[in-house]
């Protein structure tokens, strides 16, 4: 899986139009300089050799140096936590908003509150992140001065840190909350119509334990799966949000690297993303099996 990902990364980077040697040599189009640059970065070697060289070092934890001679590993290590924090915050927002509204709308199906929430969710689902982000900046930062318009403060100043990340996290989280809510609503509706929920009612259990224990636990199984599938969307969402809010995270690093045709940096960044994707999917599978005893005991 990761091997395939690494080959795609490597090939994909090289398929981007533009010549890194020229980008590096800047205005200096002297063929000798360009040749020297190519030799230094093994750009004159055949692609399989370049790949072999890169991957050999990568598995040892060395992602090479970028165009500015900085260690790609270090650059990523300094930027990644910022994005992880943003991702975690937006996930928290989406779970806090999405799961309860999903449950409530399922229970109050067909009532005005259901229609209202489902309608809002549809809007949340349709509105692109970048537009919502810009609107949020104009409204909450420029007009109301409630929150900063962008930038980032390290976690050494927790309050300022949260203030800076709140707006982007909410913007990013709202879209996912909508996805989560719709998913939760439909799987709760499925669960609420099942025989075992009828059994739970026949046992004389309270409505709370019928809904929040018997129906909810089963609904979480499908929702977890969807959550895992949404991960790709979260990563791409982080990239745009970081650019809009000027957050020096992993996403803006990726954009810079692509603009610079910085092969090693792009490769490193995308490889880390691929690893992250695999790891999170693994976690989702683990959670899934914890929630679903039918899988656990096979």
């Amino acid at each position: 899986m990761l091997v395939v990902a690494s080959i795609v990364v490597f090939g994909g980077v090289r398929a981007i139009p533009g010549n890194p040697a020229i980008a590096l040599g800047a205005e200096n189009r002297d063929p000798a300089v360009i040749a020297a640059v190519k030799a230094k970065y093994l750009l004159d070697k055949p692609l399989p050799v370049q790949y072999g060289h890169w991957i050999w070092l990568a598995v040892q934890g060395d992602l090479g140096v970028d165009q500015r001679q900085l260690s790609v590993g270090h650059t990523i290590a300094s930027r990644l936590p910022i994005s992880l924090e943003l991702a975690a915050l937006s996930m928290i927002v989406s779970v806090i908003v999405g799961i309860p509204t999903g449950v409530i709308t399922a229970v109050r199906r067909g009532k005005p509150s259901d229609y209202a929430a489902t309608g809002v969710a549809l809007i949340g689902l349709s509105v692109p992140h970048f537009w919502l982000g810009l609107m949020a900046i104009i409204w909450f930062a420029v007009d109301l001065h409630w929150l900063p318009a962008g930038g980032y403060v390290t976690a050494h100043h927790p309050i300022a840190n949260l203030k800076h990340l709140l707006l982007p996290a909410v913007v990013l989280g709202i879209g996912f909350a909508a996805v989560l809510m719709r998913q939760m609503r439909s799987s709760m509706l499925d669960s609420l119509g099942t025989d075992y929920v009828r059994t739970a009612r026949a046992k004389g259990l309270s409505e709370w334990s019928v809904v929040c224990k018997h129906a909810f636990r089963n609904s979480l199984i499908t929702v977890t799966t969807v959550l895992g599938l949404q991960l790709g969307a979260l990563i791409s969402g982080i990239v745009t949000i970081e650019v809009i809010f000027g957050i020096p995270g992993f996403g803006s690093l990726t954009i810079d690297a692509i603009n610079q045709r910085d092969y090693t940096l792009i490769q490193g960044v995308v490889l880390v993303v691929a690893c992250g994707y695999v790891i999170v999917n693994l976690l989702v599978d683990v959670v899934y099996s914890l929630l679903n005893p039918r899988i656990r005991t096979i």
Binding site: T194, D195, Y196, R198, T199, A200, R201, A202, K203, G204, L205, S206, H214, R217, N218, I221, L291, N292, P293, R294
Partner: peptide, 25 residues
Amino acid sequence: LRRVRGREISYIFQEPMTSLNPVFT
């Protein structure tokens, strides 16, 4: 009503395969 259900009057359903909740022992 909930105090009657399950305590005074119990119910056994037709479908044993689906009437138990799959995620609880």
